[in-house]
Each structure stands twice: as structure tokens, then as C-alpha cells.
Write a protein that binds this DNA or RNA. Structure first.
Lengths: 116, 116
DNA sequence: GTTATCTTAAACCATATGGTTGAACATAAT
DNA sequence: ATTATGTTCAACCATATGGTTTAAGATAAC
């Protein structure tokens, strides 16, 4: 559902718009961490860090498992792939190599590296 | 400068976290538009749409040229490329094909498609 | 010079955000 | 049962956001 996809992208990009949350993802990319572990490098209260983790969770970027009193968090990269899919829709605009390839396909004789 | 890069990424992802602004970028990907043209498809005031365009501009995603009383906007895809660079840092986590390739490189004899 | 058009600024509003502190909840250790 | 640990909730605060309306500014058309 298009509307649903927009909402998800909203949340993902929103979650990524803060360097604390990006740093948390970078750590989670290396493996599972507890909430306390994720919070510890940041100079903010545990409650603030907990809020950030919840924002990541709402975006689907983090999944948590509770075992006893410990909350374990893991990265879920699929929403990142979808965000990347969206960005790659613009790849043609930033990748001049693709532009040149398209140009070559249209006018093959214009290739300066072609000695013909 | 690392800090500067973070700020820029904040702004880019922030700008992308709204479907109105993403829709504006999609139109700009097809070519230059005036502010009024960008605003017209949306059911919001011109002032509101103007604010969105300013958010895109602050993120560096849009460049504007003023000719007379008309403001022309163009997409600048470079910040999208940088956002994509950041996302691609996680490619290994979402692309299981890369995972399998790495696994093959480590244990070549485990390839089930290899009849050896 | 006057009117029209394009666009933003200012003020306002409701909501969201990102942080704090202290309390509360859930579970583990003793 | 009590204390300790891990974590979230609630209330608060300052700021930001996304929208509105109206006014203002810049330029073009007449």
C-alpha cells in the first residue's frame, strides 16, 4: 500500500536524522547489544537513550528481545534496504558514469576511447 | 570534518522524512520547477509549501535561481549520494548475496552447486 | 503610477521532539 | 522478604515542526 510505504519511509528517514541514533545503529551492526550498552557511550540520561532506541524500534530498524530484566537489541537492516532503494531511484542523477553510459548507447561513435 | 558531515546527514535525512518533500524531489528529478509549480499539487497553503522547499534547500538537496519574481528550483543530487553512501555501509547486512559470497570465499568446498 | 503576480515573513496554533528528573515497573540477586 | 539492577513511564521543559492566515516584499505587466 503506497500510503503505508510512505509512512514507513517517513519513520526510517526520521530515525536516521539524528546522529545518536545513527551511532546506535553502527554499534548494532557489529552485533547485539543491551539497552544499557547502547546507552553507555552517550552523554545523556538512560531515559533519553531509551527514547532513541524506541524511535529506532518504531522505524523497524531495531528488534528487541527481553530475557529477564535485560533488553537485547539487534539491527534489522531491511528498512535500510528500502530507504536505499528509494535513494537509488536518483542514482542516475548523481552517478555521471551512468550518464555517460546512456550517452554511449545513444551515440556509440562518440566514444573518445574508441579509435574507429 | 566529522561533525560537519553528521550535521549534513542530519539535515538530509530530516528533509527526506516527509512525503511532501520526497514528492517535491521526485518532480525536480524530472527537471527544473518554479516554487509555484512545486507547490501546486499539494493541498496546503503556498506558505507551507514554501517552508518545505526551504527545508530541502537547507539540506542542500535543492538549489534555487531567482530570475525576476520567479524562483526556479533544481535538484542537487550530491547529498542523496552521500546519504546513500552511508546506507551502503550496511549493505552487507541486508544483501544476503554478499553474505553467501563471503562464505564461499571462506569455504569454497561448501558450494552445493559445485559437484566436486 | 497602479495593479497583478510570485514568494516569503511574521504571528499564531497544535503537535512533536529531545532532553531531564524522579517514580514506577520488572526481574535478579541476596 | 529485601535489596539491587535494568529499563521505562510520567511530568516537565525548551525547542522544533508543519500547518494556517495575513501582511510584506520583490518584480512584472499595464
Amino acid at each position: 500500500m503506497v500510503e503505508h510505504n510512505h509512512t514507513r519511509l517517513d519513520l526510517v528517514f526520521r530515525a536516521l536524522s539524528d546522529q545518536t541514533r545513527r551511532a546506535m545503529l553502527e554499534r548494532l551492526a557489529k552485533g547485539e547489544h543491551t539497552v544499557g550498552e547502547l546507552a553507555s557511550p552517550f552523554r545523556m540520561s538512560l531515559a533519553a537513550a531509551s527514547k532513541h532506541i524506541q524511535t529506532l524500534q518504531r522505524a523497524g530498524l531495531v528488534k528487541r528481545t527481553v530475557r529477564g530484566r535485560i533488553h537485547y537489541c539487534r539491527i534489522d537492516p531491511r528498512p535500510l534496504a528500502r530507504a536505499d532503494d528509494w535513494l537509488r531511484g536518483y542514482e542516475r542523477l548523481w552517478d555521471t558514469r551512468i550518464e555517460r553510459l546512456v550517452e554511449l548507447l545513444r551515440h556509440p561513435d562518440n566514444d573518445p576511447s574508441n579509435p574507429r
